[in-house]
Simulated scan of single mutants.
Amino acid sequence: MDFHLPKGVYDPGRDGSEKKIRECVICMMDFVYGDPIRFLPCMHIYHLDCIDDWLMRSFTCPSCMEPVDAALLSSYETN
């Protein structure tokens, strides 16, 4: 499954919402500079592997329970 959601790397020096978020609520581990992360539409961030695994089971943000649009969760299997 390939999720159509923005991803990046954790950089606490960047401006933006990342600075306020210190840990991944799924695994409870602190983000470390360079960690692969994924952004949900609600702007919460998670470790890439943690959230991808989570989204296989639940289409809601684990922090705020905001639904993640199913269209963003579609795979490229139609190629």
Rank of each mutant, 00 (worst) to 15 (best):
M1H: 15
M1D: 10
M1R: 15
D2Y: 07
D2R: 11
F3R: 02
H4K: 13
H4Q: 11
P6F: 14
G8H: 07
V9E: 13
Y10I: 03
Y10R: 04
D11T: 06
D11Y: 06
D11K: 12
D11H: 08
P12V: 10
P12L: 07
P12A: 08
G13I: 04
G13S: 11
G13D: 08
G13P: 01
G13A: 09
G13M: 08
G13K: 13
R14M: 12
D15P: 06
D15I: 10
D15V: 10
G16P: 02
E18P: 00
K19V: 10
K19W: 04
R22I: 12
R22V: 12
E23G: 06
C24P: 04
V25I: 15
V25Q: 05
I26R: 09
C27P: 01
C27S: 03
M28R: 15
M29K: 11
M29I: 05
M29L: 07
M29A: 12
M29V: 07
D30E: 09
D30T: 04
F31N: 08
F31H: 11
V32L: 10
V32R: 09
G34R: 08
D35T: 07
D35C: 11
D35G: 05
P36R: 14
P36C: 08
P36H: 10
I37M: 06
I37R: 03
R38I: 11
R38W: 02
R38M: 14
R38G: 03
F39L: 09
L40N: 00
L40Y: 01
L40W: 01
P41V: 06
P41H: 06
P41S: 07
C42L: 05
M43I: 02
H44Q: 01
H44V: 00
I45V: 15
I45K: 02
Y46V: 00
Y46K: 01
H47K: 09
L48R: 12
L48K: 13
D49L: 04
D49R: 07
D49H: 07
C50I: 04
C50W: 03
C50S: 05
I51H: 03
D52V: 14
D52A: 15
D53C: 11
D53P: 00
W54C: 02
W54I: 02
W54L: 03
W54Q: 03
L55R: 06
M56Y: 12
M56P: 00
R57C: 07
R57V: 04
S58W: 09
S58N: 13
S58H: 13
S58V: 12
F59Q: 12
T60N: 00
C61Y: 02
C61D: 01
C61V: 04
C61A: 11
P62E: 14
C64D: 05
C64T: 00
E66R: 02
E66D: 14
P67V: 07
P67F: 03
P67L: 08
V68F: 00
V68C: 01
D69N: 15
A70K: 14
A70C: 05
A71V: 08
A71M: 06
A71N: 09
A71H: 06
L72W: 11
L72I: 05
L72C: 15
L73Y: 10
S74H: 14
S74E: 15
S74F: 12
S74R: 15
S75R: 14
S75A: 15
S75Q: 14
S75V: 10
S75F: 13
Y76G: 08
Y76I: 06
E77C: 06
E77S: 13
E77W: 10
E77A: 14
T78W: 11
T78G: 02
N79Q: 13
N79S: 13
